[in-house]
Design a protein around this nucleic acid. Sequence first.
DNA 1: TAATCTCAGTGATTTGAATCAAGAATAACA
DNA 2: TGTTATTCTTGATTCAAATCACTGAGATTA
Lengths: 195, 195
Amino acid sequence: MINILSKYMSDFTLINEDEQRAISESLQIDEYKKGKCLLRQGELSAVKCYFVLKGCVRQFFIDESGKEVTSNFFTEEQAIPIINEQTQGDLSKYSLVCVEDCILVVGDIVSEKTMFDKYPQLETMIRKMMEINLGEMQEQFGEFINSSPEERYESVLRKRPQLIDRVPQHQLASYLGITPESLSRIKKRINKNKS
Amino acid sequence: MINILSKYMSDFTLINEDEQRAISESLQIDEYKKGKCLLRQGELSAVKCYFVLKGCVRQFFIDESGKEVTSNFFTEEQAIPIINEQTQGDLSKYSLVCVEDCILVVGDIVSEKTMFDKYPQLETMIRKMMEINLGEMQEQFGEFINSSPEERYESVLRKRPQLIDRVPQHQLASYLGITPESLSRIKKRINKNKS
DNA sequence: TAATCTCAGTGATTTGAATCAAGAATAACA
DNA sequence: TGTTATTCTTGATTCAAATCACTGAGATTA
């Protein structure tokens, strides 16, 4: 499990093995059962971010009209940003719930600064991760804007094929911005064309 | 112009005024005329990122079917990320063109490391900016997923009202993921309901 | 000043997703 | 194991955006 972290550190920084071990050991790593709610919309979060080592976390919110909207699914090697300079002190706009049993690195805001002071390379790593994340997000957004529901489903099918079996279909539908009924029909349409 | 940068440094870091001035003076700041193409889809970029001090830059790409898709408009105080650890060496997926006369901070990849070594606080600032950017992007994405074309237009009307007068309507339409005809009708519908 | 282009508005028609309304299939539970 | 939830599928209808086709308004240029 820890070697996922080592991989990151090796890829993005020049941190040596001793320090890598020291860093890994100072990190808080917790396990959560499927269904566990990590954060509830409207509440204050003590956690600054999570990093998924194993499992799947769904981010969603209830909009003004009472509809549940899934805004993301976080899986292995993805960071879940919760608090930043701008949102600290704000009530959360999202809920986070484990869709599967999970193992997560838990980042709290107080230990962050201590760690960055001790291991400056760690901040570099996080910065690079953020830059990559942002780039991916932008690309995903550009693609989403441009595509129809059917194309969006096919895009997930290409880019995150495991997701389709790991999450309930009605949640996936809400992540695609469509109704469960439409997703059901889209799947039928695609299967028909393939056979 | 420079005080936009000072504001950032004061907000996010403890950099003192002398260093702020030194940093500002080492930054490359360029002016570009309306219509200037900063980066062309399919070409290699020498620039790692821009930061908009004044003006508006449109990011877009031509998709497989030949359709032009606007994926973002960057205006004052927004960063335009171009290259990251993952995409360095890749041909650009986007084009960047000035929609107005622009004044931009130009960040190149070589000077970045030198600057970060000299001013570690600068890296902290950039990291925090990235975290905020990512948070905003996530929120925008969640909202986009959930909303109809009409709601998306109203959202831009609320959040970036200046944008509507600053950019051509057909480009705005493509940014909203709709046809120019639909945007025209949506505007008519909204004006009718207001009067 | 006329001619050309590009962009915004309008109409008619098509199309695909939303909605409303039931059933079928699974999963959860007593 | 049978009962109750939930989740998924399917059908009929509605509705809003896409598409196609055209007109008019500005801007640009010859």
